[in-house]
Design a binder for these strands. Structure first.
Length: 193
DNA sequence: CTTTTGATCGTCT
DNA sequence: GACGATCAAAAGC
């Protein structure tokens, strides 16, 4: 059984499913990941790294096990775990999770939320629960991200959300039936089949 | 229930 | 200067 962070160096879609059930802890809140998406840098037109190395994507080209945080739509932060060998520039977007510790802190960061299962539903909401922002870009996750014991739950796969390319690639993974997983909505920009 | 729209700015062309 | 790995509220049915 490979240790940290070697376990992250396999094919990014396999690594993504391994991250389901992992617990990420930051700023007094812990979230158990229930939904993730894989992005494979060089071969994936939907990946930020597809068009090469830029200041923003620099972290993706570095070693695995670090956090890649990007700013989205002028107001949100979203977080990825960098995977693969150095220079592969693959990453797994953290789309949803269940708050398993620090729920009061998570609630206060999110403001009024009707139901706790929605606290960390959606990548920007998950990042907000954990207090992740630009200062966390490149953060070494050793000790902060605890991988699950051999997964004892069913995994579903489907198309990725929000991307306008390669919509047919089933690189979104989630814990089957988990209430914290967002209901699927195809990108408005996705090309019609 | 589904669809539309406003908020808001870093990044890349 | 246009666009985007989003979200929540509003509007339409």
């Amino acid at each position: 059984m490979p240790g940290w962070p070697e376990v992250l160096t396999g094919p990014v879609d396999e690594v993504a499913s391994l991250l389901l059930g992992a617990v990420l802890r930051h700023s007094g809140v812990a979230v158990r990941l229930t939904e993730v998406e894989a992005y494979d840098g060089p071969d994936d037109p939907a990946s930020h790294a597809y068009r090469g190395r830029t200041p923003r994507t620099e972290v993706m080209f570095g070693p695995p096990g670090r956090l890649y945080v990007y700013f989205s739509y002028g107001m949100h932060w979203c977080a990825n775990v960098v995977t693969g060998p150095d220079d592969r520039a693959s990453a797994v977007l953290l789309r949803a999770g269940e708050v398993v510790d620090g729920i009061e802190a998570a609630r206060s960061r999110r403001g009024a939320v009707a139901n706790d299962v929605r606290l960390a539903r959606g990548p920007a909401n998950l990042a907000r629960c954990l207090g992740l922002d630009r200062t966390c870009n490149g953060l070494d996750l050793a000790g902060l991200l605890v991988l699950p014991d051999p997964p004892a739950f069913a995994v579903s796969t489907g198309p990725r959300v929000g991307v306008s390319h390669a919509v047919d690639v089933r690189w979104r993974f989630w814990c089957s039936g988990d209430p914290t997983v967002s209901t699927y909505r195809r990108s408005p920009r996705a090309v019609s089949p």
